[in-house]
Design a binder for these strands. Structure first.
Lengths: 188, 188
DNA sequence: CGACGCATGTAATGCGTTACATGATTCT
DNA sequence: AGAATCATGTAACGCATTACATGCGTCG
C-alpha cells in the first residue's frame, strides 16, 4: 500500500466511484495517470479493501464502480494515526536557476512569464473548485471541511508562487538588489 | 538526460565538485540520494559532458572531482531555451485531507503541528543559506542572483505553508467557518 | 471527418528509494 | 564503545510516465 492507494481509498470512503472518476478528482492534488490507478484499484479489491460492480451505460462506455469495505475503512483510520511524510516537490525551474547566470535576460523573462501563466491558471482552477464547495456545514467533521482546507492549501501555495514570479520579474526590469518585499521573518 | 542530470550539470558549470558535494548542494531544492547521482555523473562523463580526476586526501577518503566540458556547457544552454515543465508536488497531507472527516480532532491537530514544525525548520534552513549569499553583485548575470531568487522561492513557499497551517489550527480551535485570512484574489 | 471525452486495461521504460558493501576519522 | 561525517559505488525493488490497444458518441 503506497500513498496514492490511501488517497484513492480516502476518496472512496466518501462515495462510490469509477477509476476514471477517481483519476479526475485526485488530479489537482496528486498527479497520477489512469495506467497507474487501475492496477492499484484491482490490487486493493483483491485484498478486500474494495468491492466493485459494473454499471452499464447507453450513451457512454460501461464503467466499474468501486465501493470501500469495512476492512478498507479500518485501513484508512490506521493510516491517519501514522506519522506524516515530508512533502516532495520537483520543479525544473529550481534547477534552471542554478545556471541562470549563463542565460540571457530575455530567456529568463520568457521562462518566468511562462511560470506566471501556470500559476494564474492554477489559481483560476482552484477557485472554481472552491466555488463548488457548499458554504453550509463548514466545520471540523463535515466532509466539506477537508475539501475546503485542501483547496486553500493549493491556493495559498499558488499565490505565493505567483508573488515570487512577480517579484523576480520586477527585479529583472529594475536590474538590481535585495527585494524589499519580504513580508515576515522568523527572526524579527 | 533527465532533469536531475541538467541540475548537476548546472552546478558543475559554476565550480568543480565531487558527487558527494553535489548531493549536498542539490538536496534543499531537489531530493536525490547519492545512489542516483553517482551513476548519472558516470553516464555524463561517458558522453563527454563532464571530465573527472581523483583528489587524494589525508584525513578524509579520496574523492573524484568532476569538471564540465564545453560540450556540457553547450548542452546546458540548449536546455535553457526549451520550454519549462510544470512543477510536481506529492504531499501525503493533501491525501489525508480527503478523509479528514473520519479522523478525530486531536489527531488532526497533531498532524498539523507536525507539518508546522516542518515548515519552521525549513524556513530556518533556507534563511541560513540566504545569509551565506554575499550581498554584493546581486544583479542579473551574477552567479549569486540565481541562488538568491532560488532561496527566496523556497522561502516564500514555506512561509505560505506555515501560514496555512496556522490558519487551519485557528479554525480547529474556533470550530468554525470560512477563513477571513484570504489576502488577495484574482477576481477583486 | 477528425478531434475530444468517456471508459478500461496492459507493457515497456525510466526515475527514485532502500538496501548492500566498504572504510577511515572524529566527536560524544 | 558507538555514532556521525566523508566518500564512492552496485543491486533490487517500487513508483510513475509513455506508449500500445480498443471502441462508441458527440461536437465542430
Amino acid at each position: 500500500m503506497n500513498l496514492l492507494s490511501y488517497g484513492l481509498l480516502g476518496l472512496l470512503a466518501r462515495e462510490e466511484s469509477s477509476g476514471y472518476d477517481l483519476m479526475l478528482r485526485i488530479q489537482p492534488f496528486w498527479q497520477a495517470k489512469h495506467s497507474q490507478i487501475y492496477p492499484l484499484l484491482a490490487r486493493m479489491e483483491s485484498k478486500e479493501l474494495l468491492a466493485s460492480r459494473w454499471i452499464q451505460q447507453s450513451d457512454k462506455p460501461d464503467k466499474k464502480m468501486y465501493t470501500i469495505t469495512d476492512k478498507g475503512i479500518h485501513m484508512l483510520q490506521q493510516w491517519s494515526q501514522e506519522s506524516l511524510a515530508a512533502p516532495v516537490t520537483r520543479d525544473e525551474l529550481s534547477l534552471r536557476l542554478f545556471c541562470l547566470w549563463l542565460t540571457d535576460k530575455s530567456s529568463a523573462n520568457r521562462m518566468l512569464e511562462e511560470r506566471k501563466r501556470h500559476f494564474i491558471q492554477r489559481i483560476r482552477h482552484l477557485e472554481d473548485i472552491l466555488n463548488d464547495i457548499p458554504d453550509e456545514d463548514l466545520h471540523f467533521g463535515s466532509k466539506n471541511f477537508g475539501d475546503y482546507i485542501l483547496v486553500q492549501k493549493g491556493l495559498m501555495n499558488a499565490k505565493a508562487g505567483l508573488e515570487w514570479c512577480q517579484m523576480v520579474l520586477r527585479m529583472l526590469l529594475a536590474g538590481d538588489v535585495r527585494a524589499d518585499t519580504n513580508p515576515f521573518s522568523l527572526k524579527p
